[in-house]
Design a protein around this nucleic acid. Sequence first.
DNA 1: TTCGTAGTTCGCAAACTTACGAACTAAATT
DNA 2: AATTTAGTTCGTAAGTTTGCGAACTACGAA
Lengths: 99, 99
Amino acid sequence: MNTNKLFSEEQKKAARYAKAMAHPVRMYVLELLSKQSCCYSGDLSEVLPIAKSTLSQHLKELKDAGLIQGEIESPKIKYCLNKENWEEAKQLFKNRFNL
Amino acid sequence: MNTNKLFSEEQKKAARYAKAMAHPVRMYVLELLSKQSCCYSGDLSEVLPIAKSTLSQHLKELKDAGLIQGEIESPKIKYCLNKENWEEAKQLFKNRFNL
DNA sequence: TTCGTAGTTCGCAAACTTACGAACTAAATT
DNA sequence: AATTTAGTTCGTAAGTTTGCGAACTACGAA
């Protein structure tokens, strides 16, 4: 399917963000971060019933989608929302669906 | 992964709704319906660059997720948002992310 | 310099998604 | 009864996602 002209960039972005949210683990992480600003991936690892490698994969997806960012605080990594993109995502959803 | 106790039902629902939105075609349909209350799948078929069978599949996903409902108006089918679930989805997103 | 901690990458398997065309169903029209 | 219209279902192919454990990297502490 050639999507070049048929969907707006905004629709594609909104769908992309929705995809990043489309898994309970990732929803959990986003929800946590939207409430407490930061967390360590070790803390997530303790609480979530998945292998570390799997968690790492989910965090990578959130990073690739632009919704979170990690900061090294050796030996841990501190994750926060990427505020700019997070605001964009919220705006996209609000505008589309008048939430 | 056993998700029985680890994520709230609400997180799972929210992720489920996000998944339904996680494709440009489905985002397009939802956006349209949130703006104009109804549409015929034939109209969508004319405007979207995908095979009828593929569109049918996407509409089925939205139906299965509970976000839309179809009503037969022979020989066409009229689609609308499923208002109850749509409100639920919006509420879930608002509450989670204080949008 | 070796060890432990924290996290990532690799390789793989199983399941799911996306897309298509062909064949099908259901109902209204001719 | 045959045709047309509108949409669904089936079978299939290619690609993506989810998950795991094992092997790896990076780096601070002993």
